[in-house]
Amino acid sequence: MQFVSRSQWGARPSRYSLTHIASTRGVKIHYEGTAVPASLAKPENHKQCAGRVRAIQASHLANRQEDYSDIAYSAMVCPHGYVYEGRGARKKTGANGTSTLNAQHYAVCAMVGSSGLTTPTDAQLAGLRDAVEWLRSSGGAGDEIRGHRDGYATACPGPALYAWVQKGAPRPGTTTPPKPQKPALQPFPGADWFKTNPRSPIVAAMGRRLVANGCSAYVEGPGPQWTGADRESFRKWQRKLGDAEQFCDGWPGRRQWDALKVPHI
């Protein structure tokens, strides 16, 4: 993958703290929806792409009606196949139309427009696949690859990109995309994630494993909302593992989480 980090393309800081997400159902594909010069696809014009990402971030930060925290996309892909880090992995996107939709999928935007450059290049399609696979490995993205218009009334990502999505988003040179291997166990969402009072199927899956291991402090549940009962149940698990009392505070750590073997959601 030809990856361009935020610092490399010159991103401005986020206006607000971005919302952490542990996983999504998958990725939604977007296009710019405005005119993109056809000349941008020329090899010698790749030097313009970082500036284009900066301009899109600036326009989003200036949009006080939407009140974006940052560039709305998780990533952008230029016609030359480079993946530009937007909000990035494990950060809730702002591009899918509603808060619920933003939590369900990441958003990857191709530098393709409604006029000018309207058909993605092969390098760009390969870059889109790279971005999807990066978000799967680093961001807990699920198997789904959909268009922005799936679930929201919009023409995005345009006819050419949407036709590619409907074919299964194959990498150029193949007829079908490789079947992703779903991990057997849920990756550790991070110690701080539990302190944000999360509501997620991951919490319920964790609770079921705690019950199965005889570490339940639940009166009802477990359910998707993190509660004091989840913390007390996890404290019991920490003690069952034989951890020193100062490490039995009910807040999951990576080693303790991995030992619990929570199935992937």
Rank of each mutant, 00 (worst) to 15 (best):
A131H: 04
S59T: 08
V27W: 03
E133S: 14
R90H: 15
R64N: 01
T24P: 12
E85V: 12
C78N: 09
N96W: 03
L125K: 11
G127C: 12
M111V: 11
S17P: 10
H30F: 09
A55I: 00
L40H: 06
G33N: 10
K91F: 09
M111C: 10
L125S: 02
V27Q: 05
L117I: 13
S114F: 07
V53Q: 00
W134E: 02
D122K: 11
G10A: 10
A11G: 10
I29W: 06
A110W: 04
P37E: 09
Q8P: 00
G86K: 00
V53R: 01
A35C: 07
V83L: 05
N45E: 10
E44V: 15
A72C: 08
K28D: 06
E44P: 04
Q48H: 14
N63L: 00
Y73F: 14
K42L: 15
C49L: 11
A11N: 08
T93Q: 03
D130W: 03
T121P: 09
A22F: 08
S137G: 10
S14Y: 00
P13H: 02
C49I: 05
I71T: 03
W134M: 13
V83P: 08
I56K: 03
C49A: 15
Y84G: 13
P79T: 09
Y31I: 05
A123G: 01
T119Y: 10
R52Q: 10
K28C: 05
L40Y: 12
K91C: 13
Y82D: 13
N45D: 09
H20L: 03
R15P: 01
I56V: 14
K28Y: 08
G88L: 04
G97D: 05
G81P: 13
D130C: 09
W134R: 14
Y82C: 12
V132K: 02
E133A: 10
D122H: 06
H80S: 09
T34H: 13
